[in-house]
């Protein structure tokens, strides 16, 4: 069964990244919903490990781009070089031409380079010298940024944050988990020995399956109440944000092995999906957005009790 595949993927990644099951699920859900992921955390929390493990478990080819302030778009997308043998320009594909791209410290690059990446993420293709180069499918970007070190960074504008389906935090591990890290084998070794659980064809099938997850009107009502609430409280979710919420909830339901969405799915993905979209999201610490989300979760009733 396909849901078994998902469970296997999560178990496989869980072997490498300990104690972060929730984040792994969100991550997989984000991938299944064909969205991109923004991980915001301090260095050394396992962002790269997570991306790497995901690529390994899903059998995706993986590229890492380290963003720096002197980066140019061609460093990401690729460059046309003159081939003297054929006497013609030849496009050399950049690191973005892989199924899973880890864009490390995205806020360190200039807006120009950021835009190049974000445009490619949205279009799923690269246009260079009038030629179009389609990016591989599935195409999944995990971007990371460091929230605490603001010096010399170019924070992503709100409109570009919107391109990421989810923004998650990894957070510190539990003491027990940390102890395991200390005594256990090197995670990097484990990464190398990871075997892929699904191939890209199965992955595409899983992505298709997300669309067929049933979303009942009761849950739609709940989502609309949430969205309405966010719009009353602050600058709320845009329609794209609503669609993102729906897609993420459906994918999360699939990750949970359910054929229909329940409000808990929405609640789990609400923080990652809406946190960087509601007002205050430009605040790199994201606290304002998180506050709105907390309020939404607490105050919007799951069961409509309008009459009572």
């Amino acid at each position: 069964m396909t849901s078994n595949h998902v469970a296997e993927v999560i178990a496989e990644i869980g072997n490498v990244l300990l104690g972060k099951e929730e984040q792994i699920k969100l991550c997989v859900a984000c991938l299944l919903a064909k969205g991109h992921l923004l991980i915001e955390d301090l260095p050394g929390m396992g962002k790269t490990t997570l991306a790497h493990a995901l690529a390994g478990a899903l059998g995706l080819n993986y590229q890492r781009i380290q963003f720096t302030s002197d980066m140019l778009p061609s460093d990401i997308l690729g460059v046309s070089i003159f081939n003297s043998e054929t006497a013609a320009f030849e496009f050399r594909k950049g690191p973005i031409f892989s199924q899973l791209v880890l864009a490390d410290e995205i806020n360190r690059a200039t807006p120009k380079a950021q835009s190049a990446l974000l445009e490619a993420m949205e279009e799923r293709q690269v246009t260079q010298d009038g030629d179009c180069y389609v990016l591989p499918a599935p195409f999944f970007v995990i971007a990371t940024q460091n929230p605490s070190e603001q010096m010399g960074t170019y924070p992503l504008p709100e409109s570009q944050l919107d391109r990421f389906l989810m923004r998650i935090h990894l957070g510190y591990p539990d003491p027990a988990v940390e102890r395991e890290l200390i005594v256990g084998i090197d995670r990097r070794q484990l990464l190398k020995s990871m075997k892929s659980v699904v191939d890209s064809e199965q992955l595409a099938k899983l992505q298709q399956e997300v669309a067929s997850i049933h979303l009942s009107s009761a849950v739609i009502d709940y989502i609309q109440r949430l969205v309405g609430f966010s719009r009353r409280e602050s600058v709320g979710l845009s329609p794209r944000g609503t669609l993102a919420l729906v897609a993420a909830a459906k994918a999360y339901a699939l990750v949970e092995g359910r054929s229909h969405v329940i409000p808990e799915d929405v609640q789990v993905v609400l923080g990652p999906v809406a946190g960087h979209r509601v007002q205050g999201a430009q605040d790199i610490t994201g606290h304002a957005g998180v506050n709105v989300v907390q309020k939404m979760l607490a105050e919007v009733d799951v069961v409509d009790r309008a009459l009572l």
């Binding site: 329940i262 409000p263 808990e264 609640q267 939404m296 979760l297 607490a298 105050e299 919007v300 009733d301 799951v302 069961v303």
Partner: peptide, 9 residues
């Protein structure tokens, strides 16, 4: 039951 509490929670 809290308002924002899902049925399974």
């Amino acid at each position: 039951r809290e308002g924002g509490e899902g049925v399974w929670t």
